[in-house]
Write a protein that binds this DNA or RNA. Structure first.
Lengths: 194, 194
DNA sequence: CTTGCATTTCGACAGCTATCTAATTAGATA
DNA sequence: TATCTAATTAGATAGCTGTCGAAATGCAAG
């Protein structure tokens, strides 16, 4: 099944594949039929079908030596719904909650229901709470490329550059050779609650 | 506005652009902000924004020398609907009807409500009716590449190769140097009604 | 008019990928 | 088993495009 929207769009973003989907909308087709209709060679069609199959957009059924390919309409319908709510899922899965967390009170005011940071608190204590919440997205012992750090932060706030610097400045993240990793809690220099 | 689904998918099928859309979901952003968040240079961001703007996915508002870019949510919503009903529109717009057409009776049996040819008639008279119906998609005096011919036919039936040959065989289409054009009705060699 | 800043345009380069031919796999049939 | 056919895989090439630095544009402020 499709892992990410990006892969789905990539799969559909080619004329040949879009036309294959169009042809399959009319019913099952073999590789030969598709190749003839599209004016392409069989290996090329095979290649495109592999990409569409990897996304669950089409399925295949073997009958003797020929394979009948068809659209998976359910997969298509499910995906098109996701187009409307970009990326919300990822952040939503990481809402603050957890009742006994002493930062919960602060987070309630700065994080919306979608897990997005509404603004970056100015004061030290509130800012500390937010940073402690953000750092949870990083596992200890693991190395992250800068792009990965940005992506994780952007699930919650657009200004990943500022927040990334902030995490480094408070010694919650360390950086060397363009790689980042999470530091143990004892190292943190962050105001407010422990 | 987006002309074709293909262009829309192409616009979204890149990580940087998908992330831009994600960032803009949080509100207006300048080129500089986007460049910082994505870890790209301004010219690159500008390039991506141009592509998204060409599809009507984002819009821009000038304020002094900086431009604030935002999502056009209506455009996105409208587009995602189209994903569900691929290409049906095109064929549907070309239903046979037209009451006094003597071919109407035949076409009623061979063309479905979506303007798709259910099967290719074997007998000469019925086949002639279908071919006369298909040829209407081609303007006299205009040249078509083979791919264009296929595309036009595929709006109605998957096996464009057979039908294309059929049109040429009955001298409704002529072909030279990989280009096709419609022949005048007097040239046609097609059975059944005139 | 000159200076400064945000953005866009231009030109070049690198990486990706769609396509092809040739070779291989796998199923059906004799 | 040998053979034929449908499809896939492998390898090579050509075209496209994402990215960058440099230059150009356009707006604002002295």
């Amino acid at each position: 099944m499709t892992e990410t929207l990006l892969e789905f769009f990539k799969a559909m973003a080619h004329e040949s594949r879009l036309r294959i989907v169009g042809l399959l909308a009319g019913g099952e087709r073999s590789v030969q039929e598709l190749a003839a209709a599209l004016d392409l060679k069989e290996p090329t069609v095979s290649h495109h079908l592999a990409i569409l199959k990897a996304q669950g957009i089409v399925t295949a059924r073997a009958e003797g030596t020929t394979r009948w390919h068809a659209l998976d309409r359910d997969a298509l319908a499910a995906l098109s719904k996701r187009v409307l709510q970009p990326q919300a899922e990822k952040a939503a899965a990481r809402l603050p909650r957890k009742a006994r967390d002493p930062d919960a009170e602060v987070l309630k005011n700065f994080v919306d229901a979608q897990g997005r940071l509404k603004s970056i608190p100015a004061s030290g204590k509130k800012r500390g709470a937010v940073l402690r919440w953000l750092i949870r997205d990083f596992e200890g012992g693991k190395r992250y490329a800068e792009a990965e750090v940005n992506e994780a932060i952007q699930a919650h706030h657009w200004d990943s550059a500022t927040l990334r610097r902030e995490l480094v400045g408070h010694r919650m993240l360390a950086r060397k050779d363009r790689l980042y990793w999470r530091l143990p809690e004892a190292e943190w220099r962050v105001g407010g609650e422990a």
